[in-house]
Design a protein around this nucleic acid. Sequence first.
DNA 1: GTGCTCCATTTTTTT
DNA 2: AATGGAGCAC
Length: 762
Amino acid sequence: MKTFSLPSEGPKERPDFLAQLNAQQKQAVTHTDGPLLIVAGAGSGKTRVLTYRIAYLLQQYKAAPEQILALTFTNKAAREMKERIKDLIGDKAGKLWMGTFHSIFSKILRFEAEKIGFGSDFTIYDTSDSQTVVKQILQELNFDTKEIKPKTIHNKISDSKNQLITADTFQEKFISSTLDDITARVYSIYNKRLKQSNAMDFDDLLVKPIELFQKHPDVLEKYQDRFKYILIDEYQDTNHAQYKVTKMLADKYQNICVVGDDAQSIYSFRGADISNILNFKEDYEEATQVPLEQNYRSTKAILQCADSIIKRNTKQLDKTLWTEQGYGERITLLENFDERDEANRVASHIQNLKMRHGYKNNDFAILYRTNYQSRVFEESLRRKDLTYQLVGGLSFYQRKEIKDVLAYLTLLVNPHDETNLLRIINEPSRGIGNKSIQDLLGQARDEGRSIWSIIQNVESLDVYKPAKARVREFVDMINRLRNNLENGETLTDTTKAVLEQSGYMKALVEENSQESMMRRDNIIELQNAISYYERGAKNASLSSFLQEISLITDQDKFDEDKPAITLMTVHASKGLEFPVVFIVGLEENLFPVGARQNFDVDIEEERRLFYVAITRAEERLYFSHCRSRFKFGEETRQARSRFLEEVDAGVVQTETGATITQKKDRFSDDGNSSGSDYTVDYDWKESRTKKTHRSPSATIHYDYEDGEDPFQVGVRVEHKKFGPGKIISRSGSGTDAKVVVFFKNRGQKKLMLRAAPLQVID
DNA sequence: GTGCTCCATTTTTTT
DNA sequence: AATGGAGCAC
């Protein structure tokens, strides 16, 4: 990270920070009033501009800290910005309203919840909670959740919410298929169910404020007056709801400053609408646009590479990135046999760079398109004793045991939360089976009350008798714990009591497996987090702790100072920078991802994603791809990514320093080419998948005991596709054994013994 | 009502 | 390959 320090003497009456900005940055900082669009290219000092702008507003007495609202996409970005502002203006920076859209608006909702019929202790449902609710509703409506996927329906509901389409509107206007029909029915029940549970989903955190402001203009005005200046980071990734709610807030003073880069818009899958930034100037007529075009991050080679990619996209705002830095190193292309080869090669390069050029672990990032690619890299790095940090994947707070414990805690502040109640009413098993639960649910539905309220009098209900006593005990336990909490018990003690009285810890101890030990460790870690929170937070309360952690994301645990190699998705890398970057898995149907049933691939977005990845690099950049890869337990032939054909070949070299060869015009621009005509020296024409171990012709080759394997150098063989040939060399062993065969008609090829349809000719 | 085994599905990206 | 769900036996 490039840091710079300010003169530290005395009170900062007139800090000289403007002198440290270039002309464009200075304009962006000092243009304080009225709408402003900052088009910030990658690495152009955007964060510096935002922080200085806030410092400048304060210094000019334009606003008090609590009158400034700064919205970011990650907590990390907010925290970092807050730190930097603190360096400029001191502790009053703590009063700034700075955070993610979701966290800021959940705070506002907490204050105003009653006005829209919620309690301030509402639960925030994450995606899996939401899907659970949808699934339940589908089952109640007698749909087969195998055919009608809860995930699909929830996605549709979520998309609708992000576009501010209510359940009613959806019902009236947006039905064009049976799936929509089902969605419409589920959507409105889903909303009622959440409300009854006093719960909001992620989307509600953006939608409900709009509802609130529309119903209560006085409340809107209160916040309009409070937030005299509004700043929004990553504006290209805002969705319609975010656009709308900030437009409402900015309406009175029009002091809205948005920063973004249309070339880095990579979240359309969750409703981000690139037209928000493209149309900003039409939207706010008085708007000024300032571009930030000087890149301070990367070498010329890297920028040139990035530019050669992004210029293939059609829709773009005007800007030209340039840098004063030198040309630097060319980009190195790593060609690998399979993903293990890839991981090892990357790890070796890291070792080499550390040795030869003095890089440290935290100078490196390995970026991939999908989380599942991380595993092999972890293995390779571990084997080479290289420390790494994995960002993303299954987060701590999504683990079953953590969600369970949090469900108990949630019930203590919001017992009407049905999803969390159902989650733990029989966890650990306490004799309340599915039948009983369904009976209870049925009666709750009939009376239109929450399950919690009806089980207060479980004795009078029509339920399997032995279960009644168990429910009674459960209810008493929760009430007891609630009471203690209300009487001022600490969160730490409450948590401890939950773990004891629920029998959750006991069950884990009794199981006494490796698995259960890990779960216990995780729960202890949660306990630590709770005590830590309790000691640190000003107004510590269980309910605010729970709301806070439900908005914590995986990137928040990324630590740039930790001496570790960073492994993460390209999405997660946005906003970060590293001296050395490896972009791996550059293969068709991986990066760019392959089309799936529900989802067309937006090839321009994939390209922007690739652009984001490239522009993370400061000094050295590596591209990597595999010819073969295991997917779903099957070996798949992988064609090289079209992006490697698009990139300016002049800035790329192979490991041996050779220039790369490309096949121009291999792909049409519709993004639907299969890439099947791609060939490398191994000439694997087909990119279809093949079972590795089931097909008879494939199995025979690796079932041999030592010494029996007939595929030795010099042996004549016949290949199903390539015809007759002769083995000229051999490498690897066991299932990794490979041979190079010279085929009469096809030339030399390297084949994996366990997979290739080869037979010995006598 | 509980727990085990087999099977099917997954792998886009995240607040 | 790995996970979670459904179905089945106790």
